[in-house]
């Protein structure tokens, strides 16, 4: 490299390194260190795993952790199941103008804040809401029904909020599958189910994986949807982090919770990548 080029290289490297070091790497090291501190007296701390021990010993924390993980996985699978036929329709069935209109229509809801979307579901689902009124009008139920504040409502909200992140990568990968390959499958006597299983899904795998990773991540880290749509008992792990930091002011325990959430999401993302033979650069970049 010439001196000039070398100078340019360092000028471009500096912002990247500063950004990652100061805002990503060092803060997470600090968080890890803090999570290993135990308060033994006023302003006195010792290094220990006490916060993690608290997490394991307290059934509420463990249960919330497991619940958040399971519901996020469920939300991811539901989003995939609901989104896949739609992505397939846009990529393979719709043509020309209809296709781009449908694709744009998929994007529109995500141009408005998550808060607005959640608010919309509250108006729809609550006891005095639109769905309840409609059901009474149609004579299906006799009195107001409360559809809000339960796990199904959380699920509807989570799936709704993350749909875009599933549909877009799916459309992109399905789009690159040549129609003639599917035709060839039919010519060779394949049934729709076997063509889906042996041609379409393998081809769409990178899209499925990247969609699932993002949706899982967003569900796991979601705060608004579970808190606004969920009931009193439907705790979400992010709520525990928030309450330790802002309400209880127990930052050490909160930091441990934050790390556990990060750990959970990393493990599941890593496992998904390994199982399907994908890499992070390829699926996200």
């Amino acid at each position: 490299m010439s001196a000039n080029r070398k100078f340019g290289f360092y000028m471009l490297l500096a912002p990247l390194v500063l950004w990652l070091l100061l805002l990503i790497i060092l803060p997470h090291i600090n968080l890890a260190v803090l999570s290993l501190q135990e308060r033994v007296g006023v302003g006195q701390y010792e290094t220990s795993f006490a916060n993690y021990a608290t997490f394991i010993q307290e059934p509420l924390y463990l249960a919330t952790f497991a619940r958040t993980a399971i519901m996020s996985i469920l939300a991811t699978l539901l989003t995939l199941l609901i989104g896949f036929p739609v992505a397939y329709y846009i990529a393979k069935m719709a043509r020309g103008r209809k296709r781009s209109v449908l694709f744009l229509m998929c994007l529109i809801p995500f141009w408005v804040s998550e808060l607005v979307r959640t608010f919309g579901w509250m108006i729809l689902l609550r006891e005095t809401g639109v769905v309840s009124s409609f059901l009474q009008w149609a004579g299906i139920v006799s009195g107001p029904v409360e559809l809000l504040y339960n796990d199904a409502a959380i699920m509807i909200g989570l799936v709704y909020t993350s749909m875009l992140f599933m549909v877009v990568p799916l459309v992109t990968t399905l789009d690159s599958l040549d129609d003639s390959v599917i035709e060839a499958g039919y010519d060779l006597g394949g049934k729709p189910a076997s063509i889906l299983r042996e041609i379409v899904i393998p081809h769409a795998m990178p899209g499925i994986v990247s969609g699932c990773i993002v949706v899982f991540m967003l569900s796991l880290g979601n705060y608004l949807t579970p808190i606004m749509l969920g009931g009193k008992d439907s705790l979400w792990f992010t709520e525990l982090i928030y309450s330790q930091f802002i309400v209880r002011f127990n930052w050490e325990l909160g930091a441990a919770f934050g790390f556990l959430l990060l750990f959970l999401s990393s493990v599941i993302v890593w496992a998904a990548l390994r199982l399907t033979g994908q890499t992070l650069e390829k699926t996200m970049g």
Partner: peptide
Amino acid sequence: MILPLVIPGIVLGISILVS
């Protein structure tokens, strides 16, 4: 460079708050 996308937003928030 990709990682910030797969870190939950709330964890990013608390890590910067702590630091």
